[in-house]
Amino acid sequence: MSKIISIHSYRGGTGKSNTTANLAALVAREGNRVGIIDTDLPSPGIHILFGLGVKQGERTLNDFLWGKCKIKDAAYDVSYVLEEYETPNNKLYLVPASVKVNEISRILREGFDPELLFAGYQQLIKDLKLDYLFIDTHPGLSEETLLSLAVSQIVLLILRPDRQDFQGTVVTVDVARRLKVPQMFLIVNKALPEYDFEQMRQQIKATYKLPVLGILPDSPDMLRLASEGIFTIKYRNHPITEVLQKMAKQITNKTVTI
């Protein structure tokens, strides 16, 4: 059975898109058919990590939401980022959001039907025979974000070791619990290397009553890559890659023990 995994944060700047791209690539690398949808329509960006840049192609998620195309027509095969890990058995697809100013303005002005977006998730899974669909959500708690959380089997909440992130995540966790999300985990990103990670894990776990899937250290290597590729593919023996690999294995297990 296919799984929908939403990656969410209360605020922007948490590294949500980077984490989504890397986890999706790692899951695909293990022989799975994986899709990613960028639902951060006001501020899209994950497409850059896959080398699409401003030349996204003819179709985007916006076109599907406006009835101009089927959602599979806006899905691009980005399996090439897996490099030598690309095989006939695995696939990685991306449905980008439009970066055109007039189309972003239209979304902000007119909105769209969240139910249509949900139908698009299901259709994409069916058309592309996906094992996993990753949703890169818009930060905060908009209607479409709430729907994405509600239809997900797994929700990963990303926060930084920052007081504003901590307070905002409390609200998000409460909402997700009300939506009865089957599985919910926390990911801490941009933690300074001198922190005691185990102590941080226990404190955050106790605060939110949720398991911490992993803690990612802040790293100049991530800045150095500057979104020119998938970090876990480019830096295969890096400590960040090791943490992300463990997370990918945990979320694809039927039983997760943390």
Rank of each mutant, 00 (worst) to 15 (best):
M247E: 14
S148H: 03
R160S: 11
G13I: 08
S43F: 08
I5N: 01
Y10L: 07
P182Y: 09
I154Y: 04
A150W: 01
D162G: 08
D38E: 15
E110Q: 12
L156W: 02
I251E: 08
L149P: 06
G31F: 11
H238L: 07
P217M: 10
L52P: 05
Y85W: 13
L23S: 08
V34T: 10
Q153T: 10
R201L: 06
L192V: 10
K254L: 13
I37A: 02
Y235E: 12
K55Q: 14
Q250C: 11
V175G: 03
V54F: 12
W66E: 15
P44T: 03
A97D: 03
E143N: 10
L49C: 01
V243K: 13
L128N: 08
R178W: 08
V81L: 00
V81Y: 01
A226R: 14
A206S: 14
P88E: 14
I104R: 05
V27C: 04
L141H: 01
E58L: 05
D221C: 02
K55C: 06
N90L: 09
E83W: 01
I71S: 02
D162P: 06
K234H: 12
E110W: 00
L26E: 15
K209H: 14
Y93I: 03
M184E: 12
R163I: 14
H8P: 03
P182M: 01
E194Q: 13
L23Q: 04
V243F: 03
N18M: 15
